[in-house]
Design a protein around this nucleic acid. Sequence first.
DNA 1: GCATACCTTTCACTCAGTGAAAGACCACTC
DNA 2: GAGTGGTCTTTCACTGAGTGAAAGGTATGC
Lengths: 255, 255
Amino acid sequence: MSGNVSTPGASVVSRVLAVLYAFDNGHRRLGVTDLARRADLPVPTVYRLLRELVAGEALTRDADGRYAIGRRLWDVGMLAPEQTELQQVASPFLSDIHAATRATVHLAVRDGREVLYLDRLSGRASVPVVSRAGSRLPLHATGVGKVLLAHAPAELQDDYLAAELRRPTVHTITRPDRLRRQLAAVRREGCATTEDEMTLGACSIAVPITRAAAPGGDSEVVAALGIVVPTLKRERTRLLTALQVAARGIGRSMP
Amino acid sequence: MSGNVSTPGASVVSRVLAVLYAFDNGHRRLGVTDLARRADLPVPTVYRLLRELVAGEALTRDADGRYAIGRRLWDVGMLAPEQTELQQVASPFLSDIHAATRATVHLAVRDGREVLYLDRLSGRASVPVVSRAGSRLPLHATGVGKVLLAHAPAELQDDYLAAELRRPTVHTITRPDRLRRQLAAVRREGCATTEDEMTLGACSIAVPITRAAAPGGDSEVVAALGIVVPTLKRERTRLLTALQVAARGIGRSMP
DNA sequence: GCATACCTTTCACTCAGTGAAAGACCACTC
DNA sequence: GAGTGGTCTTTCACTGAGTGAAAGGTATGC
């Protein structure tokens, strides 16, 4: 599967997946040609696959001939245990935080070198936030990202800091030494903050969710919980307390 | 695709989908043999498909050899426009209701003859509720279900009422004539209620979400918004008001 | 030790899948 | 209204990917 999907010898399965993976946040509805280009496959091949996927209700086809992910694939996705089990346990705690603070609340995990947002509760009148469930952002520019990076394996941290870091705003911290010091502080203090680092006008604060350790075993950071608000600072302790209470509760509730 | 998946002549695509669709709420982790049985396919065939699906990160395989839906399929599912666009628009309104009432809030659509739950916000200390995002329940036993059934095409209503109706509790209303009168009342009054009809000890109230009509065009019920609480009655008006405000907001916010 | 129930591999057959090429169908432009 | 560039759809002869019965492993339990 590491090889090119288009090379002869690639299986139908890999081609199907290539077609499905051709959809993304910015491209939820695509025509045959676009899909073929993105999946790097001949048009007729994609055309045939699409017909079968639509027949199998995995995709839908709208009036103008474009394709989109269908209800049954949504169903299937909702069964992914790694994402949904955590999300289900955390859900009532997110509600509590949201009710207490009226801020945007995030539940996120690390997926490789990115933050993957599992859930979000947003107020109507809050800051415009980029993330939604299923979206990804760089690890170094968000509160939850810093928490997850700080508790990632040391080698991944080194790798990450050695690479070029994206710079969504002028306040994004990209200098490796400064970021490294921040990560140490995150581990020491048990929380991470950002100010205008991902979106101008938005600040965030985040804490790790730690899976309750087996007696004697190591506890493990499995996710992060964060809040995004327009202005921070004076409310810091109140927000942090709400987060920590919830994070502890989620950690304890996990199987 | 209407034909049997196992019959010779069925495509690889249909077999892949049969394997994926073999997972469900009660069976999120399955072994090769189980999957083969559920997908009605020979074991080696499924085995080969699974290997490729795991290689393509569509599925994961845990230590004991069982398979589950993987992160990338979750990602793909989150791109289904029909589910997630509505869910995204509605999300802040659900939060508002939840914050105002501290009750469990549901967003649901009709999928054929079932309620499909798109989102749920639940308090920690509330009634045990069966539904979660992605789960399905019968149309006649829940508040949101009655709303969606009441606004479904007349022929579907007739069909539905003619068939045998499931009976999750002793309070479930299954007599066609009584249910038909209730549906008329739902349309007339703009809300539906249940008492112990799906789960003993749980009551619900729900309203339709109507897509803002094009000038002169018909408005259309696209979803339902509901609340589940332990005891109802005296709070009825307060809950109903919260729901209606939100439903109107969602309807107006939709593209 | 045998039995049961899985998971995994082999292998010869063959039909499902392939993709270049051509055809149909737009929606514009000049 | 002929021409053009862009889609989507169909055809068709070739061939190797996919098939599944059967056999080989492996891990249980009794």
